[in-house]
Amino acid sequence: MDIGGINPAILIASLMVASVPIMLAAIGELVVEKAGVLNLGVEGMMIIGAICGFVLAVYSGSAVMGFVGGALGGAVLSLVFGLLTQFMLTNQVATGLALTLFGQGLSSMIGQGYNGIKPPATTALPLGPLAEIPVLGTILFRHDWMVYTSILIIAAVWAVLKYTRTGLILRAVGESHDAAHALGYKVVRIRIFAILFGGAMAGLGGAYVSLVRVPQWTDGITAGAGWIALAIVVFASWRPWRVLIGAYLFGGITVLQLNLQAAGAAIPVEYLSMSPYLITILVLVIMSSGRGKAALNAPAALGQNFHASR
C-alpha cells in the first residue's frame, strides 16, 4: 500500500523516531521555562550532547553510555548558563545565545577526527509478539528503547508538574519568584536544578541525533532542532502532552519532506528542506495570535532574573 511511492506505516514509524530529539529537548526546556528561566541555548546544549554522546559511545562501544554522556555533556554546559544567569545575573537571552555559539564551536572542536566513524547501534526493545502485529507492529512496537523512554519522560514530567509538591514549588518559582522567596523556597537553587534537567534532556536529544538519527558525526549536526524545540514549547503552551503532539507534528513534516525528496517529488530539494522551519513559523503565528493566545499561559516570571535584595 503505497501513496506516491511512500508507505504510510513506515512513514508513521519513522515519524516517531524523527521526533525524539526535539521532543526530549522541548520537554527539558518546558521544565526550565516553568521555573521562570528562558534558556535559548538549547541548540548549543543539543550539539554538545550530540558530540559527547558520540565520543563516549565510540570509546565504550555502548550506546547506553553514549546517551549518559550526552545527557552529562548537555547538563555541564547548561550549568555554565545557570551560574551566569542565576549568580552573575546576566541577561538570559544574551547568555542563551552565547551558549549556542560556544556550543557549536566547542562541538566541532571536540568532533575533529570523528567524521566517518559509525557509532554502536542502539538496540530495539524486544516486544516479542507485539512487534509481529501487522501495520500496528511496524508503527508502534519495533522502535529502539529511547523512543519509549522519551514518551515515559513526558509522562513523568506531566505527573510531577501536576500532582507533586515539587512540581507545585517549581511552578510557584516560575510564576512569582518574589512570592516563592517570601515563602522560604530557594529560588536560585530550584532554578539551577531545572536548568540542569533542561540541559540533560537537550543533551540526550542531541545524542539521539548523532547516535540514531544520522548516525555519524558532522559539524552542525543538529541543524536548528534546538530552535524548533524552543518553538514547540510555545506551541505546546507549556503543557507536557502537547509537547508530544508538537514533536510528532514536526517529526512528521521532517520525515515527509525527506521521503518526498527520496521519492523524487517535483519540488526542488531546497524548498522541501526549508519546509519544517517555515511550518514552525506558521504554527508559532497561529499559536501566538487570535484564539490561540499561547502567551497567556506563559509562566509570569519567564526570563526575569531574581536578586534577593531583602
Binding site: A223, G224, V234, Y271, M274, Y277, L284, S288, S289
Partner: peptide, 23 residues
C-alpha cells in the same frame, strides 16, 4: 501583528535563507 516571538522567527528564517541560497 500576531505577537509572535521575534527571536525564534528571525532565527528560523536563517535556515530558510540558507536553503534559498543553496537553491
Amino acid at each position: 501583528r500576531f505577537n509572535t516571538n521575534e527571536i525564534l522567527v528571525s532565527l528560523l528564517l536563517v535556515y530558510v535563507a540558507q536553503n534559498i541560497l543553496a537553491s
